[in-house]
């Protein structure tokens, strides 16, 4: 399996009131193409920082990150932006959307902006509508983002993250702000995308969410404490139980 993401000795440090805070310390791991990786850890362990750093949204202090074979260290801001636009998709916990655009407009925005995308506006809109239909939110296309439920909005975010057919989706607590039923819907969608070949790296504190991943990385104090491979052949319930036991062993 080809590695889509390779992280070597990654460090991220913040200076707060002249004090150095080492959030990530010499992290090394890989993500294979088509994998669904969950990142777990206690609050303040550096999960979200890891996600933002490997996706190029934040600068690393030291280390090496390669995405699709390209070293991200040497890339300019514009190159990183282009990479995020064309090759990555993002899903945030808070379902950030542009408040002046309708749901459909939000979904198609990355495709309209992408220079690599040669589709016409009509074709982009059509792709957006297809994605919305797949995720069962066709009826909210022209709605304001304040007029839809959290679950619908998060599914719209998934549509947006997929509009440019990225190689990888990064999700930061995608179900964090949702109820159980909406969480299940969202995770069903992400699993389906993964089964279609999209690599997914998500941060979560929810064992039920992590149990759906093929592999779980457990981070404590900026270091990888352990990695766990979920047994796909087991039922979801069994996987949750096994993962829970493993996490307890890790000190969760």
């Amino acid at each position: 399996m080809k590695n889509i993401l390779e992280v070597k000795d990654l460090c991220k440090t913040y200076i707060v009131n002249k004090r150095q805070n080492n959030v990530l310390r010499d992290l090394s791991f890989t993500v294979g193409e088509g994998e669904m990786i969950g990142v777990m850890g206690p609050s303040g362990s550096g999960k979200s920082t890891l996600l933002y750093t490997v996706s190029g949204m934040d600068k690393m202090t030291a280390g090496e990150v390669s995405f699709c074979g390209k070293k991200m260290n040497g890339l300019s801001e514009n190159d990183l932006a282009e990479m995020r636009l064309d090759e990555m998709g993002f899903i945030f916990q808070q379902m950030y959307m542009m408040k002046n655009l309708s749901v459909l407009d939000n979904i198609i925005l990355p495709a309209v902006k992408s220079r690599r995308n040669t589709l016409s506006r009509k074709e982009i809109v059509e792709r957006g509508r297809v994605l919305m239909k797949k995720l069962g939110i066709t009826e909210i296309a022209d709605n304001d983002i304040n007029e839809v439920s959290g679950g619908q909005l998060q599914r719209a975010c998934i549509c947006r993250s997929m509009i440019n057919k990225p190689a990888t989706i990064f999700a930061d607590e995608p179900t964090g702000a949702l109820n159980r039923s909406s969480s299940n819907e969202v995770m069903d969608e992400l699993e389906r995308l993964n089964s279609e070949g999209t690599t997914i790296m998500l941060v979560t504190h929810d064992v039920k969410v992590a149990a759906r991943c093929s592999r779980v990385i457990f981070i404590v104090d900026g270091n990888i404490k352990g990695e766990y491979n979920n047994k796909r052949e087991d039922t979801l319930r069994q996987r949750e139980r096994d993962l829970n036991n493993w996490l307890l062993e890790m000190g969760w």
């Binding site: 949204m57 801001e77 514009n78 932006a81 282009e82 990479m83 995020r84 636009l85 064309d86 990555m88 993002f90 945030f92 950030y96 959307m97 542009m98 408040k99 925005l109 990355p110 902006k113 992408s114 947006r160």
Partner: peptide, 16 residues
């Protein structure tokens, strides 16, 4: 600020 950060996250350049 949040929207600008979002646009950057989505891949918008600062100049755009």
């Amino acid at each position: 600020k949040q929207e600008i950060a979002l646009m950057k996250a989505l891949g918008f350049r600062t100049s755009q």
